[in-house]
Simulated scan of single mutants.
Amino acid sequence: MTAPSERKPRPCRLLDIPLLDYREALELQRSLVDARHTGRLDRDVFILVEHPPVFTLGRRGGLENLTVSQEILQRRGIPVVPIERGGNITYHGPGQAVGYPIVHLPSAGWKVVAFVEALEEIMIRAAADFGVSARRDVRNRGVWVQDRKLGSIGIAVRHGVSFHGFALNAVVNLEPFDWVNPCGLRGVQMTSLARETGRRDLDMAAVRRTVLAHTARILGLDFQPADPAWALRQAQPTTDTTSPIMDHLPQRTRS
């Protein structure tokens, strides 16, 4: 799969956020989707972020695929968050490059299946930049290295606008994946770029850069870096700097 060569890059606001609580990122996404739909936002937004440890449940559920008690997760301080994306249970944590494209699919000329394939292609090409040969697998969306899953995908579409997205395992701690049947698949081992390359010193900043480069190229986006506080003002015009989301934004990104 390749992005159409004739596609003219579309202006897109880029929110490059080092670390943000998952529930705060979800609130931000939903607000941006509404703003994009109603026209308060006149262009798409791409969020690149990492999350503190969290399990998320897609529309297919997933608690039945949790292999440890929720009490154990509570002791570890890892929440379980039900959400509206496709798919089953998965884990997010630091060292995982998570991309959330807030894209108005009709105006960008994307069909949902082709858009999901494009997100897979981003991860495949990013992995190749680190010498890892990843591929698709008919069993489940995402990208794989042989029988090991390297990256996951789950999106939702509301009013023609996509949200949620993909998660590429770079230097993430893989242990929490052992506490679930990831994406509802039994007997599947998760892997990471660090594990596949044997490089414990893999540079997460380099991973994020290559993910952004391939995202821009494959989705046909012309990134315009933006401050997350700008996004909040666009998404929620009445939001002030006492917003709960603002409390979790890195100090250097606040305006």
Rank of each mutant, 00 (worst) to 15 (best):
G142Q: 05
G154F: 00
E71N: 13
I102N: 03
D178T: 15
A216W: 09
H214T: 10
M246S: 14
P106W: 05
L41M: 09
R10I: 03
P176N: 08
L221P: 00
G87I: 01
T56F: 04
V54R: 04
S107C: 05
V68D: 12
H92F: 05
I153S: 03
L249W: 09
V80C: 05
R141T: 10
T2D: 14
Q251V: 13
W230F: 15
R7P: 04
D16A: 13
Q70C: 12
L48Y: 09
W179M: 12
K8A: 12
I17L: 13
D247Y: 09
S243F: 06
A235E: 04
G198L: 06
L150G: 06
G58A: 02
V180T: 05
R199L: 12
N169M: 07
R10Y: 03
L105V: 07
N173E: 15
D42H: 06
D137V: 05
D227V: 02
R141Q: 09
L219E: 03
P106S: 08
E27L: 10
L105W: 03
G220R: 01
L168I: 06
R135W: 10
F177N: 00
A213F: 11
P9K: 10
L32N: 05
W179N: 06
W230M: 14
R135F: 10
V143C: 03
E24T: 07
S31E: 08
L63D: 10
A156E: 00
R199Q: 15
T238L: 11
R209P: 03
E121F: 03
R10L: 07
Q74M: 05
L26Q: 02
F166R: 01
R60S: 13
I47S: 03
L57K: 06
S152Y: 01
K111S: 12
